[in-house]
Structure formats: structure tokens, C-alpha cells
Design a protein around this nucleic acid. Sequence first.
DNA 1: TCGATTGTTCGAGTATAATCGAACAATTGA
DNA 2: TCAATTGTTCGATTATACTCGAACAATCGA
Lengths: 84, 84
Amino acid sequence: MPEVLHALADPVRLEIVRLAAAHPRLPCNRFFDEIPKSTMSHHWRVLREAGVIRQEGHGAARLNSLRREELDHRFPGLLEAILR
Amino acid sequence: MPEVLHALADPVRLEIVRLAAAHPRLPCNRFFDEIPKSTMSHHWRVLREAGVIRQEGHGAARLNSLRREELDHRFPGLLEAILR
DNA sequence: TCGATTGTTCGAGTATAATCGAACAATTGA
DNA sequence: TCAATTGTTCGATTATACTCGAACAATCGA
């Protein structure tokens, strides 16, 4: 639980989560042109390791999806509260 | 929002919040005898400045209360999800 | 008044996290 | 095959956070 909260307690990652919620299968480089890709890769990794998102390789790109079901199962209501 | 999540993203503070939810007007030194009081004071401060708890002076002690209404108003469902 | 109780503040040390350039790997398309 | 695209990893730097002893302030009870 603290790990998930920590993953969400960052402005950039919170925005990532909200965009991922609105855009299924979101590529890593979408919507964050001003932030260096190594920085973004770090944030994607934190979210991935916390179990918040899932990545699937699709060609050279990676498509990111929010793990809604798993999160709702582990922490009911949390994601909904964050996304509201 | 990130500030509140950060305040909650610590094991000790999460436990504080849960105890505060169960024990209204909780003194600072209750339940955490093994942790130095300066460390506890730090955690109380983080929660206070994030708007999660409120302190009222009661003699030499301070009684801490969860700010349920304010939190529910600002972030509906969040506290309930955290406390579940 | 004075010792005991309850917390805060300060400062230093340590640990963790964020940032980002550079090099690398994998894939696509021409 | 080869250049372009998409991300990851590495290493270094900087920033932020956690921990905790020591000194201090406020209050209560005897």
C-alpha cells in the first residue's frame, strides 16, 4: 500500500495515470514532449513496479495500460478516488 | 493532491492515520513507544501540514484528530479507500 | 516552586528519490 | 542493409526525506 501511494504521490506520475486512464494502450512518449525520455522511463518504471500500470511491447513502442482490475481488487476505491 | 498522497505514503504515517481514525483525539505519544519522539513529531507535522490531521492543545499534551470532513470534501473516497 | 510529563525545534547524518545526458538495444520502413 | 524511431539502462548530480539526540518550551501536580 505505501508503495502504491508513493508511486502516485508525484505530479508527473499522477498525470501519467490520469492520461493512461483516459487513453488505453498509451505509448510512453505521448503527451510529455518537454520531459527527457530517460526521466519519463524512470516514472514509467516506478508505476510498473508498483503494479499501477502494465506495459506490452508493440513493435518498437510499448503500450501502457492502467491495471484497473488488479488495483480495484487490492485497494477498492483508491483508483476511483485518485481519478476523480 | 500529491502532497496528501506523499503524507500517506509512509508506513508509520499510514499507521498513525489508521489509529487516529479509530481513536479520536489521539495523543502524540500513544502507540509508538519504540520510535523517538522527535521522529514522531516529524511525522505528525507532515500529516498536519498536508491537512490530514488537526492538533488541539490540551494541557501539556496535544490531541490529534483526523480531518475526515475536509478530506472527504477535497478528495472524495480517498480516506475511505486508505482506511479500508 | 519544582520536578515530571508532553511535544517541538534544531542540526547533523544518512538514505532515498528525481533529473537527465550518453550509450545501448530492439524494431520498423525504405 | 541502414537510417529513423522508441525506450531502457547506466552513471553522476542534485534534491528531498527520514532518523534521532540534545536542547528548549509549555503545562500539570505535588
